Amino acid sequence: MSWPQNTPPRQDSDAAAGIEISDNFERFTQRNDIFTRAFWDPSVTSKHTAKFFASYRMEAAPRRGDGFAQRDFALRNAAWLVSDVISNRRGDQGIREGFQAPIQNDTPVAPDPLEVEDPARMSAEVKRIAEFFGADLCGITDLDERWLYASRVDTRDFSEAPHDLPEGLNTVIVLGHEMEADLVATYPSALAGAATGREYSHEASVVMQLAAYIRNLGYEAVPSMNDTGLVIPYAVKAGLGEYARNQMVITPEYGPRLRFSKIFTNLPLAHDAPKPKGVRAFCDICTKCAEACPVKALPFGPPQEGGSNVSAIKGVRKWTSNAEKCFSFWAKMASDCAICMRVCPFNRDYEKPVNRLWLRLALSRFRKLALRLAEKHGTRLKPGDWWAQSQKGSK
């Protein structure tokens, strides 16, 4: 029996979500994502790779310089702590929860399921509970099997392994988690990596708690972060945002400054719809992220069908990065880089009226004016200035 059951009929494309798929489409094998390849593929590993991973355990001597001192690495690694505890707890079984395998449930499914008479009302309730546990965004979509990984990864030898998931799952709850704006402004730095780590720790907590709530209602729920499937297509289909040149989802609330997680479930829920507003048209004329990338890993020009790179999904027409160039820069820095997020014109505080006005321009026929107004946007904040702000706040 094929898994999952109850998935909708497969379509060649999903025009409403801006997803264009060709006859060459193949589900992605997670073993080939660049971070997993760093453990088994000699063409990716280098003298810097081991130091990159060791720096997350403070085993490698921190680089000197603003943003790469011991306190910067210390904060970054502390931010990752909760996520690390979860991901490492079944490592001896080859299961890295949240990254190469779904998170194990610690709550049994209640034997008597709650009767759901109104899926739309249930969806509203789930979103309210997601907010209660700390998610900043929540959207719901169908479990489109195209975006599931073809297999999971056994981290003992990095071989392919079958998904060990319940049958009958038909819905994906997608959660967005905002990254701290001032930390993002310090990319590239180890300090900025604390913004990433904090949200991975947050999302681990949120997806586990929300999944436990659903299981207590008597329905299957599998909490998931980077594992099991590609979250970006699900986030777009769930109406949370639109795909951009910088490989990120642009949302009207936070721009690209988000991490995403998901829950696979069979709880009866109404699904949201994609909400294209014009990000694609803006990205067509904007190349700030590609220009700012130190190793030129981001594409110029229009979206193209990917798949020539082993770390790119085959048969999808989109903007696709050079994963090897990107990761090599990360490894040399011993920290993640998100310059492309920092310089993105959509990376703004939309609580400010002036930025909401800019967004309206960017998503309209006046997008060229919005681009000119964003020429100096995304200036880097010195990491030392971030620490100085925290010291001022303590007085």
Score class of each variant (00 low, 15 high):
Pro4Leu: 09
Asn6Gln: 08
Ala17Val: 08
Ile19Ala: 11
Ile21Ala: 05
Asn24Met: 06
Arg27Asn: 13
Gln30Arg: 13
Arg31Ser: 03
Arg37Ser: 03
Asp41Cys: 09
Pro42Glu: 04
Ser43Lys: 07
Ser46Leu: 08
Lys51Cys: 08
Lys51His: 07
Lys51Gly: 11
Tyr56Leu: 13
Met58Arg: 06
Ala60Gly: 02
Pro62His: 06
Arg64Pro: 03
Asp66Tyr: 03
Gly67Ser: 02
Arg76Ile: 00
Asn77Trp: 07
Trp80Asp: 07
Asn88Val: 02
Arg89Lys: 09
Glu97Cys: 06
Ile103Asp: 05
Gln104Ser: 12
Asn105Val: 10
Leu114Val: 14
Val116His: 07
Glu117Arg: 12
Asp118Asn: 15
Val126Lys: 01
Arg128Leu: 11
Ile129Glu: 06
Ala130Gln: 03
Glu131Pro: 00
Phe132Tyr: 12
Phe132Asn: 02
Gly134Trp: 08
Thr141Glu: 02
Asp144Phe: 00
Trp147Gln: 05
Trp147Tyr: 14
Leu148Asn: 04
Arg152Tyr: 02
Asp154Leu: 01
Thr155Met: 00
Asp157Ala: 10
Ser159Asn: 10
Ser159Gly: 12
Leu165Met: 11
Glu167Met: 10
Leu169Thr: 12
Asn170Asp: 15
Met179Thr: 03
Val184Asn: 08
Leu191Cys: 08
Gly193Asp: 10
Gly197Asp: 13
Glu203Phe: 13
Ser205Phe: 14
Val206Ile: 15
Ala212Asn: 04
Glu220Asn: 14
Pro223Asn: 04
Pro223Lys: 07
Ser224Gly: 02
Ser224Ile: 11
Met225Cys: 12
Leu230Trp: 06
Leu230Ala: 10
Leu230Glu: 09
Pro233His: 13
Leu240Ile: 12
Leu240Pro: 09
Tyr243Gln: 11
Ala244Trp: 06
Val249Glu: 01
Arg257Met: 11
Phe264Glu: 04
Thr265Asn: 05
Ala270Tyr: 03
Asp272Thr: 10
Lys277Phe: 09
Val279Arg: 07
Arg280Cys: 05
Phe282Arg: 00
Ile285Asn: 01
Ala290His: 00
Glu291Val: 12
Ala292Ser: 10
Cys293Ser: 02
Ala297Ile: 10
Leu298Asp: 07
Gly301Trp: 05
Pro302His: 02
Pro302Cys: 02
Glu305Ala: 04
Asn309Arg: 13
Ala312Lys: 07
Gly315Leu: 12
Asn322Asp: 15
Lys325Pro: 01
Lys332Ile: 00
Met333Val: 00
Ser335Ala: 15
Met341Asp: 07
Val343Ala: 02
Phe346Trp: 11
Lys352Val: 11
Val354Gln: 14
Val354Ala: 15
Trp358Tyr: 05
Leu369Ile: 15
Ala370Tyr: 01
Leu371Phe: 07
Leu371Tyr: 06
Glu375Ser: 09
Lys395Gln: 12
